[in-house]
């Protein structure tokens, strides 16, 4: 929240300000106390010895983690691109004129959105080889992420398409475009543009979800952190702290980009598709409107 004054309270007077200061100091002391207790106990176990952290300044270790991050980003981008394509296809199929296509894709989407991603990844990694399907860990992870995310993105696209003014479609028909042409030339480009901020924040979710590659195992950032911890057992906790910091830095920046895009979008087009609750929430967007069927 930016600093616009809230109607819920007045500008604080001297007494209020004093209360805030006192309260903050008290809460601060309490939090610092708990943190300090933790630090003392960690220090007692020697967790802050520089030797435990020095590991992360070695060029080989930095390279090892950087390659892990690279693998994470690569897997997220590949799965992201594939999910875009399949997600759009699923969305269009779910909005199709043919009832059978609508029901079949609807069932597919609801099934894969309703099932934990970890279960899906375990099925792919531990199950598919039983049926003679052998892929590299990288493609197993891409496959799992794509199946799950394309179902999620399909609903995002569908929400985008349904949020367009129906006049757009009517105008397209009025100038003689066919259903396919009006989708390709008029509806989809506008819907996709509207969904850009949402898609970027979905990428944050994808980056976080790629950590599930850990169980395959695929050598992404988290797995590499664990690997470091096994190689330098005295630095295992430190390895996780470093990994968490990298994730936060990358995802926080992506989140800023999404916010910026959303602001730009709102300024440019006025209309904005607001999806409360953050990226996690998008996994279960409710689209209440009925399927989009062109009126004849």
């Amino acid at each position: 929240m930016s600093q616009q004054p809230s109607v819920l309270y007045d500008e604080l007077g001297p007494r209020g300000q004093r209360r805030v200061v006192i309260g903050s100091v008290l809460a601060g002391v309490l939090i610092i106390g708990v943190v300090a207790l933790g630090i003392v106990r960690l220090a007692a176990k020697g967790q802050f010895q520089t030797t435990r952290w020095e590991v992360f300044t070695q060029p080989a270790v930095v390279r090892f983690l950087a390659n892990g991050l690279l693998a994470t980003v690569r897997v997220a981008l590949t799965a992201g691109l594939l999910s875009l394509v399949f997600g759009l296809a699923l969305a269009l199929a779910r909005l199709s004129v043919r009832r059978a296509a609508r029901y079949a894709t609807g069932a597919w989407i609801e099934f894969f959105r309703g099932v934990p991603l970890l279960l899906l990844i375990l099925f792919i990694a531990h199950g598919l080889p039983q049926y003679g399907m052998k892929l590299s860990a990288y493609w197993f992870l891409v496959l799992g992420l794509t199946i799950y995310n394309s179902a999620v993105l399909a609903e995002i696209f569908r929400a985008g398409i349904l949020s367009l003014d129906r006049g757009q479609r009517e105008a397209a028909y009025a100038i003689g475009l066919t259903y396919a042409q009006s989708m390709r030339l008029v509806i989809v480009p506008q819907a996709v543009r509207r969904m850009v901020p949402t898609l970027v924040s979905q990428l944050v979710t994808l980056l976080k979800d790629s950590s599930l590659g850990f169980v395959i195992p695929f050598e992404e950032l988290l797995r590499r952190g664990r690997g470091l911890g096994e190689f330098y057992p005295q630095s295992i906790l430190q390895a996780y702290v470093v990994v968490a910091a990298i994730y936060i830095a990358v995802n926080f920046s992506l989140g800023r980009v999404a916010v910026w895009l959303e602001g730009r979008q709102a300024r440019r087009y006025g209309g904005r598709v607001h999806l409360p609750g953050g990226p996690e929430d998008l996994a279960m967007i409710e689209v209440r409107s009925a399927a989009l069927v062109p009126s004849d």
Binding site: S6, L8, V20, K208, S211, Y247, N251, F252, G255, P279
Partner: peptide, 26 residues
């Protein structure tokens, strides 16, 4: 996050941004 006390708002924001941007598994 909606409190009149600025330090409380900052602490709330810090919590949300940190936790939301870290994978649950981490």
């Amino acid at each position: 996050r909606i409190s009149p006390a600025a330090p409380a708002r900052a602490a709330g924001l810090f919590y949300v941004e940190t936790v939301r941007n870290t994978p649950l598994l981490v």
